[in-house]
Simulated assay, not measured.
Amino acid sequence: MEVVGKIKKIDETKTYGASGFRKREMVVTTNEQYPQPIMMEFVQDKCDLLNKFKIGDDVKVSINLRGREWINPEGEAVYFNQIQGWRIEAIEEGSAIPPAAAPVAPVAKPSDDNNPDDLPF
């Protein structure tokens, strides 16, 4: 999957735990009729991919959706989703950024007989 848009925010790399797990978050605002701010994270060695980018850059980010289940103390299942980036490419200024997919109108099926007003039901 891919997200195309303009970088709104890039956080610093954060390190967690004794193992040195690294995570860096970024927000991209999509190029749609109703723009969406999408937060995604880059982990471990992928954190360094963001070093050459800055706020305002137009980018295309390849992502994976991740999900996990957690059983809370009451025994109920709670679900969490993550968007993880694994590749990021600059979109050159002046190049066309692909618009969001436009809805496609249904195509009328031609009638098999000579009466175009004859409904099939």
Rank of each mutant, 00 (worst) to 15 (best):
K23E: 06
I38G: 11
F42K: 02
M40L: 14
I63V: 05
Y79D: 10
V78C: 09
K23S: 05
P103E: 15
P37S: 07
N72A: 05
N64W: 00
I91P: 12
N81T: 09
P106R: 05
W70P: 10
R87M: 12
V59R: 07
T30S: 13
R87F: 07
P37K: 05
E12F: 03
K46T: 10
V43W: 03
V61N: 06
A90N: 14
N72M: 02
I97H: 14
N114E: 09
P103C: 14
Q82D: 15
D45E: 03
A77Y: 04
G94H: 13
E32M: 09
C47Y: 04
Q36H: 12
M26V: 13
K54L: 12
I83T: 14
V78E: 11
I38R: 01
V27S: 02
N72C: 06
Y16V: 02
P35N: 08
F80R: 10
I63S: 05
K14A: 04
P35C: 00
D48E: 13
L49F: 05
A90G: 14
N64S: 03
E93M: 12
V59C: 12
Y34P: 02
K46F: 05
P110L: 02
N51S: 12
W70S: 09
N72T: 00
K60R: 12
S62Y: 04
I55Y: 10
K14R: 03
V104Y: 12
P73E: 06
I88T: 10
P110M: 04
I97L: 14
P106V: 01
P99T: 00
V107K: 13
R68W: 08
Q36N: 14
E93Y: 10
Q36G: 07
F53C: 05
A77I: 06
K46W: 04
W86P: 01
A77P: 11
P37M: 00
G75Q: 03
E93N: 11
